[in-house]
C-alpha cells in the first residue's frame, strides 16, 4: 500500500536527519541558539528581497553551500526534501507569467516580468527551505529545544514539542501496522473505505490516549509534577559570536549591495 510506504519514508527521513545531527563538525559545534538566530536572520534577509530580484539573491547561496560542506551533510536527501516542498510554491508562482505579460529584452532574449518573479520565488524557496533543513540537520531536536528554552519559550510548549517529536515514529509504526493489516484483507482498495473511517482512526485515537496515560504514569513515577526541568545550557563562546557576526555582516552586505552586479559591471566595464 502506498500510504504505508510513505510512512516508512517519513520515519526514515527522521532517522536520517537525526543521524546528520549527531555528527561532530565545526558547524555542529556552534551553539544551537546562535545557529537558530543566524537562520532567522538569513531567512528574513532572503524574504526581504523584492519579487523582481534574482541576481542580488545569488550571493546568499554561499550560506547553504558552506554549511552543507562544512557540516559534511549529504546533499541528495536535502535536495529531495526541497523538491517535496516545491509544488505549492511553484503552483502559486507559475501563474505569475500568466498574469504579468510585460516583456523586456535581455541580450536578444525576450522575457516577461512574470517569469522573473517566478524564478525569484523559486530561488527564494530553495534558499529558505535549505536553510531550515540545515538548521535541524546540524543541530538536532534536543539541542534546538534547549535553544528555545534559552529564548524563554514556555517549558510546557517545549516539552510538548519534544514529546510530539519523540512519538511520531512510535505512532507511525502503529499506523503502518494497522494499514498493512487492512490492505491485506482489502487488497483491491486504494485507500480506507468510508465505512471504517471512524472505527479505524478512532481505535488509533483510543490507543493513543492509553499510551499517553502510560507515558504520564512513567513520568510521574520519576517525579514529574508538571514542570519540565532542562539541564544546564551550553555557554555561548567567542567562536559562536564570531560565527554570528560574520554571517550577519555577509547577509547585510548581500542585502545592501548587489554583489554580482558590482562584479559584473567591473568586468564588463573593463573588457
Amino acid at each position: 500500500m502506498k500510504t504505508s510506504e510513505a510512512g516508512l519514508n517519513t520515519t526514515f527521513d527522521m532517522r536520517l536527519l537525526d543521524d546528520m545531527a549527531r555528527k561532530e563538525t565545526v558547524i555542529h559545534r556552534v551553539h544551537p541558539l546562535v545557529k537558530l538566530v543566524t537562520t532567522v536572520i538569513y531567512l528574513t534577509v532572503v524574504v526581504s528581497f523584492g519579487s523582481y530580484e534574482i541576481i542580488g539573491l545569488l550571493p546568499l547561496l554561499f550560506y547553504p553551500v558552506l554549511v552543507i560542506t562544512l557540516a559534511e551533510l549529504p546533499i541528495r536527501p536535502i535536495l529531495k526534501r526541497m523538491l517535496l516542498a516545491a509544488p505549492f510554491v511553484i503552483g502559486i508562482g507559475i501563474l505569475n507569467p500568466v498574469f504579468d505579460h510585460q516583456v523586456f529584452v535581455v541580450g536578444g532574449l525576450t522575457l516577461s516580468r512574470g517569469w522573473i518573479t517566478f524564478f525569484s520565488i523559486v530561488l527564494k524557496c530553495i534558499l529558505t527551505v535549505s536553510a531550515a533543513l540545515l538548521l535541524i540537520a546540524s543541530t538536532g531536536m534536543d539541542k534546538l529545544a534547549s535553544a528555545l528554552r534559552m529564548l524563554k519559550i514556555p517549558r510546557l510548549f517545549v516539552l510538548q514539542l519534544l514529546l510530539t517529536y519523540r512519538y511520531i515514529s512510535v505512532l507511525m509504526e502503529e499506523v503502518t501496522r494497522i494499514l498493512r493489516a487492512y490492505s491485506m484483507r482489502a487488497p483491491q482498495q486504494k485507500g480506507i473505505h468510508p465505512k471504517v473511517w471512524g472505527s479505524l482512526t478512532g481505535q488509533l485515537i483510543l490507543r493513543t490516549f492509553e499510551r499517553a496515560q502510560r507515558v504520564y504514569q512513567a513520568m510521574c513515577l520519576r517525579g514529574f509534577t508538571g514542570e519540565y526541568n532542562t539541564g544546564a545550557h551550553e555557554r555561548i563562546t567567542v567562536r559562536d559570536t564570531v560565527y554570528l557576526v560574520v554571517w550577519g555582516l555577509f547577509f547585510a552586505l548581500a542585502r545592501i549591495y548587489n554583489i554580482p552586479m558590482l562584479i559584473g559591471s567591473l568586468l564588463t566595464g573593463v573588457v
Binding site: D142, L162, Y167, V170, V215, Q217, A218, F224
Partner: peptide
C-alpha cells in the same frame, strides 16, 4: 514499564535518564 517506548519519552537517552534526577 513493559513497553520501553512508554518510558523513554525524551529525545535522547541522556535526557531520559536525567529526567528523574532533574525532577
Amino acid at each position: 514499564f513493559q513497553d520501553p517506548d512508554d518510558q523513554l519519552f525524551m529525545t535522547t537517552v541522556y535526557d531520559d535518564v536525567a529526567f528523574g534526577p532533574r525532577n
